[in-house]
Nucleic acid binder design. Structure first.
Lengths: 196, 196
DNA sequence: AATTAAATTGAGCAATGGCTCAATGAGGGT
DNA sequence: ACCCTCATTGAGCCATTGCTCAATTTAATT
């Protein structure tokens, strides 16, 4: 070994943390074992000693999204404030990394069981957190929704679709416009007449 | 050469047609040059003599979607009928192949210029065809929409998102449910109160 | 037939990327 | 010291895949 280990912890932990970092930088598909071992400062063999790449990759992916469901509605946050944040953060520049990871996971899921399982877990949690938030807003009288769970699913799916357009470089789609469309859907869901 | 050429035409044409077939069977990412030459019944060198793989792949992809924009609204079809078809066909089993090709293209576009250009062309045509259909329905008094173009974009994006959920194997999403959500959006866009 | 150009072939190149494995190092227990 | 176990290394294996290129066949022209 050279001398200075940048990161603390055992090789196993360092590899896992490095995997998370590499995923955030490169996305799911471009990420490679060599980038991970390089960043962790370990030999290539150690990664394969502790992990299988598809499993490590899925675990690191899940770690990235671990806190997301709880962040839908923060402690003591009013439903209105949480929805405001949801809209504001949905297409914020800082979210780009997460869109890419998310859409990569959707693409890989059919051929990558570990990713499919992780995606299912996080998606279920995210969607029920959003549905709960919407239902709480109804209880609080902030808005009306006939079926909060269905609305959550549509908001989720529309956000996915809009994020996909931005990532795919659709020249007619900007982050601002995407946010407006998402807000338009929410307004319609609440019974306000549709608009552009 | 063996003897019986399955397909007519020059090697160049046979390769192109084989590429289209392989795309439909394998999707954009799984498709390989060897599958194409094998199916075309030609040597591997011939493909590279006439094409560069990324270019051929994008051209074949575009050929698959070539007729789609015109098929949004068929000749002498009433707007109501066309929208009905749009909803019915959006998640039909026969459409699965196209969803996969579409979503593959969105994924590849950032790193694959030929695909990006083809995707842009088809997307623009599809979206304006849908917007025109929606506007015609307004003119015909079939429905009311404050901004048909914006509605077209939202229908487009929601369909993308829902198709992505199905393809990614979301256990909570079925083709029927997806159609209902898409129809729910259209109803809300037209001013009918939202529902699940 | 001879000549030229175009079509066609397929073994093999080169780069990629996950993973193996024999070797080495580092403690812990006796 | 001796042994045993676990951590660690990294050169190299192996499969994949787009693509090259020298050689061959086919076709048209004179």
């Amino acid at each position: 070994m050279t001398d200075v280990k940048k990161a603390r912890g055992s090789g196993r932990e360092r590899i896992f943390r490095a995997a998370v970092e590499v995923l955030m930088e490169s996305g799911l598909e471009a990420a490679q074992t060599r980038s991970v071992t390089e960043r962790a400062g370990v030999g290539t063999g150690l990664l394969n000693h502790y992990f299988r790449w598809p499993v490590l990759r899925a675990a690191a992916w899940e770690a990235v999204f671990e806190d997301a469901p709880a962040d839908i509605r923060r402690a003591d946050e009013a439903p209105r404030a949480a929805i405001g944040r949801f809209m504001a953060e949905a297409f914020a520049p800082e979210a780009r990394l997460y869109w890419r990871l998310w859409i990569d996971a959707e693409r890989l899921a059919p051929h990558d069981p570990p990713i499919a399982e992780a995606l299912d877990r996080i998606r279920t949690q995210l969607r029920s957190a959003l549905a709960r938030l919407l239902a709480d807003g109804v209880s609080a009288g902030d808005w009306q929704l006939p079926d909060p769970a269905a609305t959550a699913l549509r908001l989720d799916a529309l956000r996915d679709g809009l994020a996909g357009l931005i990532l795919a470089g659709d020249p007619a789609m900007t982050t601002d416009l995407a946010r407006q469309h998402l807000e338009a859907l929410f307004a319609m869901e609440c019974g306000v007449a549709g608009g552009g």
